[in-house]
Amino acid sequence: MKQKPVTIYDIAKEAKVSTATVSRVIANNYPVSEKTKKMVLDLIKKYDYQPNAVARSLTKKESKMIGFILPDITNPFFAQVFIEAEKYALTKGYTLILGNSMNSNEIESKYLRDLSERQVEGIIFMGGRINKSQPDHMEINELKDVMNKIPVIMVNGKIDGINCSSVHTNEAKGIDLVIEHLVSHDHKKIGLIGGVKGVTTTDIKVNAYWRSLTKHGLLMKENWQIYSGYDVDSGRKAVETFIHVNESDLPTALIGINDLVIIGALKACRQNHLHPFSFVGFDNTDLTKNATPEITSVSHPYKDLGEKAIDLIIHTKTMKPEEIWLDPYLAIRESTNRPH
């Protein structure tokens, strides 16, 4: 017969104290005599008593839970930031609740409502509306309503008029690192593929691309910068567009808006028997390390992104909104050579 779990009432009865005294010992938030405290703690240890997490959260007004909304958990970039945040949160005694919006505005809104109602202590937000150059008023007002209840921290995103803390990778610097590396390998014709215009992370990279080409006095052709999306198939489509609009006048190096796009481009080049490009990705996911050839890629400081986001949530009640910028680095591999 299964033994009935020990309750706070059992502990109180055996210690001959009130349940309120037991709660005070557990929460350690009110003076209790050392004799009583030791007796209660000994009984908790004896029976391996585990206080109910919900009851404890109501007593301390802390749930120790943090919401995390992202657009696509299958995208290695979002997954890696989440993993780093989760690992760090656990060391701080917090649990993350994932809201994968699957690139749906409706699902994203649902997670915002649900998480705020579940008494999470804050929400970390990636992608979706915080990466739109012009989010609609309903999305902005919805986010403001949530922020009246709990703090929201943005990762690699920002909305004008929303005053909250955020942590970013300096993605413009990442593009600068790529161009400098390719120039050092004698590349003078460099293309950029992928992304969607009006998504801020894409806009930042595209603007940095044109600025960097100007800075290095490189040839600039509109046909060498192609919007195509964010997945592997987007890379394939971008290469097909390149072939169609540029014919024989192709760049010698291709930069992908992310790793998925550049892997798609690499596959398409092989299938179309195109002359070898140098390929550079962005995000430095495990995909780049396992491709053939291994792909040079800009790396986010994933550990710092995840940990800073958690720290901002934990300490947001005691600090003013803060904007943190972190530097990327370039992981150089086999895919960048001198032009053929």
Rank of each mutant, 00 (worst) to 15 (best):
F82Q: 03
K317L: 09
I153H: 04
V280F: 11
V17S: 06
T19C: 09
Q3R: 15
F242N: 02
F279M: 02
L98F: 12
D233T: 15
K45T: 10
I162R: 11
Y30C: 07
T21N: 13
S165R: 07
I73P: 12
G229T: 08
S184M: 13
D286M: 15
C269N: 05
Y230F: 14
V206N: 04
K46T: 14
I175A: 00
K2V: 15
S116T: 15
L274F: 02
P5N: 09
D249H: 10
T285E: 05
A15G: 04
K320N: 01
L326E: 05
F82P: 13
S101Y: 05
A15L: 15
Q134C: 00
K45H: 14
K267H: 06
N258L: 13
G161Y: 13
L219M: 15
K35P: 11
I44D: 12
P251T: 10
P328S: 05
A12Y: 11
A55I: 15
V25P: 11
I162Y: 09
Y302P: 06
V178G: 05
Y329N: 05
P5C: 04
E294I: 04
V120W: 14
I179M: 01
L58T: 05
I123C: 10
K35T: 15
Q119C: 14
K215M: 09
D327Q: 09
I26Q: 14
A12Q: 13
L218H: 01
A268E: 01
P5H: 15
E86V: 00
I255G: 01
S234C: 09
L287G: 00
N100W: 08
Q80C: 05
I73M: 03
I226T: 08
V239I: 14
E307S: 09
K149H: 14
M319V: 12
N28A: 06
N170D: 08
K303Y: 02
F82I: 11
S184N: 13
T285R: 01
D48H: 14
F82C: 07
E106N: 13
T202K: 02
A89W: 07
E294K: 15
L96S: 03
E84A: 02
V6D: 08
F78N: 03
E14Y: 15
